[in-house]
Amino acid sequence: MTALARPVRGKPRPSLLGSTATPRWERIVERLIAAVAFVSVAAVLSILAFVAREAAPLFWEGREHLPDLILPRQWAGYDAPAHVWQPVGFPPKHDVVPLLIGTLKITGLAMLVAGPIALLSAVYIAELAPRRVREVVKPAIELFAGIPSVVLGFFSLVFIAHFLERLFGLTYRLNALVAALGLALTIIPVVFTVSEDALRAVPKSLREASAALGARRWQTTLLVVVPAALPGIAAAFVLGFGRAIGETMIVLMASGIAPVVDASPVSSARTVTATIAAELGETARGGEHWRVLFALGVLLFLITWALDRMGASAVARLRRRLHGPEAES
């Protein structure tokens, strides 16, 4: 310290204390960088705030209509109390239940199709494929995620609808099943990628232990690797489900978009997302219809947020399970 501060060759060196090699402007830039990083936080908060802002007046203006949003009602011309979504009817009917049912029907069907296919593919790529096959096939499957959903919607509308029509002779060309198959195409890469990661995260030592105990490959895979990766696989399904619920263009184009309430997989159906996309453009700002559509947006935001949190915590659980409680980060 004193030695450093002592003059060298006559020229006095400044003291280290309070030295400023980093200029002031640089410190300001560093502040700016930190500020920019928080744009994402501001964005998430404002998405919720500004979508909710358009929906909020529902709760103080015309509050007497609130129960009609979710409860069946005896409408004129109907035999029994019913859930009806008919925003341009007279009177306008904004019961969101048919939309929720349509969403569950289509996403549920899509998960039934996509889940097993994606999981089986992940098992093949993570456990069985030779390295060279894996290096080609894995990115190829992930490329699926690079096809715009409007293109998949078009494909469902033209090809899948045609195919199913020929196969089953359906009443409605466009229906929940068509949309679900199209939707499955967008879920597959999500479920595949996350479950493949989970399977690969299972340490090699467990596979070796299993093999050394005389387990066959299928036994190692089904009795050791898949159970060990289970939280990650659950996360994959949850995240895939979240993606499916939020998907818009495919269901908008291929579902037939009639808000029908029944259990048939081949009747027309309408999801929350498709309803917003199809109707908001022709809705007057500030009307009840407008507010209900934004409220549906808030609902979507909250549901996908919750599903995402569930997925993230399942992945964290997987890490703890495979590497012990101390491997938290």
Partner: peptide
């Protein structure tokens, strides 16, 4: 076989 690091199944 017994391995270098304990590798019980979860």
């Amino acid at each position: 076989m017994v391995f270098q690091r304990p590798n019980p199944f979860p």
